[in-house]
Amino acid sequence: MKIHLENVVKTFESFQAVKGVSLDIESGELVALLGPSGSGKTTILRMVAGLEYADGGAIHFGDQDATDIPVRDRGVGFVFQHYALFPHMTVADNIAFGMKVSKVKRDRSAIESRVSDLLRLVRLEGLGDRFPAQISGGQRQRVALARALSVDPKVLLLDEPFGALDANVRRDLRRWLREIHSELGITTLFVTHDQEEALDLADRVVILKDGQIVQQGTPEEVCRDPKSAFVMKFLGDANVIAAQVRDGRAYVGGLSVEAAGVADGRGELYARPSDIDWSDEGPGIAATISRVLDRADGRRVLATTGAGEALEFDVEPERVVKAGEQGFVTLRRAKVFAV
C-alpha cells in the first residue's frame, strides 16, 4: 500500500510538532523516520496510524483519503515503543486479540492456526502459554510484531522498535525484521533516533528536524551527500573545523578542500573520524594529542588544534601515538557548509 502525506501539520497546545510534512512511501518500501527527540517523528507515525489526527494536510493510503479514518478502521499494524502487550493475556491471547475483535468473524480453529503460524514467523513456537511478564524484552518485541501482523495490516508502523533492548539483541532483531519485511513485502514505516538502526534497516531514510523533513534518500545518498551541517552531524561523529571559503574552496591551516556552492566567507569543515589522517610532518593543521582511547576495533585519538578545536580520529592499532605528541592533521575528505 502506497502512503502519501501531503503538507501534514500537527500542533499540541502551542507547540507545533509537525510543520507541513509531505512524504511519499512506495508500496512495499521500508522507510525510517530518523530524527532527534522533539523532531516530530513519532507524531508523524501516530498520525499515519490514526492515533493522532492531523490538524492540517492529508494522508492517503493508496487512492483513499485516510486522513479522517479512525485508527480502528485504518488497517494498520502498530508496534508500540514499550510493546503495550496486554499483561493479563498470554502470548497467544495477545496475538489472537485482533482476530477476536475483528468485524470479520473467524472461527476458533482458524484463529488458533493463524496464531501458531505467527508464532512460527516470529520464532516463538512453544511460548504461546507464557504471559508477557515471563518472557524477555526481545521476545516481547516479537510478540508485539506478531500481534500487529495478525490483523493483516496494509501498513506496518513501528515506534522506536528496538529502543528498549540491549545492543546485541537489537542487532539480531534488526536483521530479522529485515528478513520478515522481505518475506511479507508489507509497506513499513518505523521511527528511530538511532542513525545506525535507520541506515542498516531502511530502504530509505527520512531525516527530520523541528517538525520538518531536512533530507531524505537511500542510506547511500544521505551518508555520501548530506545537504546540511545538521544531517552531517546527526548521521555520525563529525569533527568541525572553522575554515575560510574563497571561490569554491575552503582553506584551513595548510589545507584546502573543495567547497562548491558555498558562499565566500566563513565556513565550517566537517570530517568523519575515519576521514582524518595523522602525520608527524606538514602540510596540515597543527594539533596536539590530548588522549588516546583504545577500542576493540582500533585506536581513537583525541586532539586539539592550534585554534583550540577538539578533534577525534582513528589511527591503526599498531600506530604509536601518545598524549602530548604534536603533529599535523590531514583530511581525506570533508564537507564544507557555510556558517
Binding site: A49, G50, L51, P70, V71, R72, D73, R74, V76, G77, F78, F80, H82, A84, L85, F86, F97, G98, V101, S102, K103, R147, A148, S150, V151
Partner: peptide, 19 residues
C-alpha cells in the same frame, strides 16, 4: 498504550474497556 494497542487492532471502545 494498552488502549491504543487495542483500538489499533480493531477493538471497539466497549470491547477495549471490558477486555
Amino acid at each position: 498504550d494498552l488502549e491504543e494497542a487495542s483500538t489499533s487492532l480493531g477493538a471497539s471502545g466497549w470491547r477495549t474497556f471490558f477486555s
